[in-house]
Amino acid sequence: MLSSKLLGIATFLYLICMAVHFIYLFFRTDFFKKAALILIGTAFCAHTAGLGLRWYESYQLGYGHIPISNFYETLVSLSWTTVIIYGVIVLRYKIHVFGALLFPIVSAAMAYASLSPNVRDEIAPLIPALQSNWLTYHVLTCFFGYSAFAVSFVTSIVYLVKTRTTGQRQHDASGELIPSLALMDDIMYKTVAVGFLLLTVGIITGSVWAHYAWGSYWSWDPKETWSLITWFIYAVFLHARLTRGWRGRRMAVVSIIGFCCVLFTFLGVNYLLSGLHSYAR
């Protein structure tokens, strides 16, 4: 199908994106910066068209639904939301270095989705439990939240690497390649703040949906519980920063722990634990 081909092209372009970012780290010329931007744009267009077409194709098969219903679709959609959040950061702060860490993750997710024999990529109809508008609200808010946390995670890694090599000094030789610690600290906070809001809305829309589908807004299902754990960790992040005034390395560490919780909520729960969300496998 055409949608699979488009998504394959997007995966390939993201891989090249990753390579160009690595080259940019070595040569640091504007040419590679621009090339990376153009590649991201092209890959994102193919990605968007692929997802849109898959949505359209599902209607042609007679059971139309937004492509977020199985593991393949969630991996592809989560990559998509991540590229959007990253794009906002790139356009707003003109920082390109995070891409060198983010695109390996994005292309790995895309490649795993389309190549792994464990991931079924055909368009399947929705089981009755998933036939609800809340599916869209719940999954999209959660995914944009996860993506914001992913960008925060990447920023935290760069932050820690920078403090390890240059200490807590604000100015150093890495110049425009790696942004100042203060700016990275700010990005870390802002992405966590946006992610926290979206995660909150995601958990709440999930509760409302559970109320209509299962008759209970909270069942302590492992996925629900892990989303709550993630919420707690980022609540610690925000209180430590806003009320106690923590900054820098300590915040970066909390952000990394938080993102590990996100990953476990998204992947670990499906593969290591069992529960109501089992159809997300």
Partner: peptide, 14 residues
Amino acid sequence: LLILLSAVCVIGTV
């Protein structure tokens, strides 16, 4: 308490 609650919830999911 937030960290303790998180740790305890992990037990509940395992």
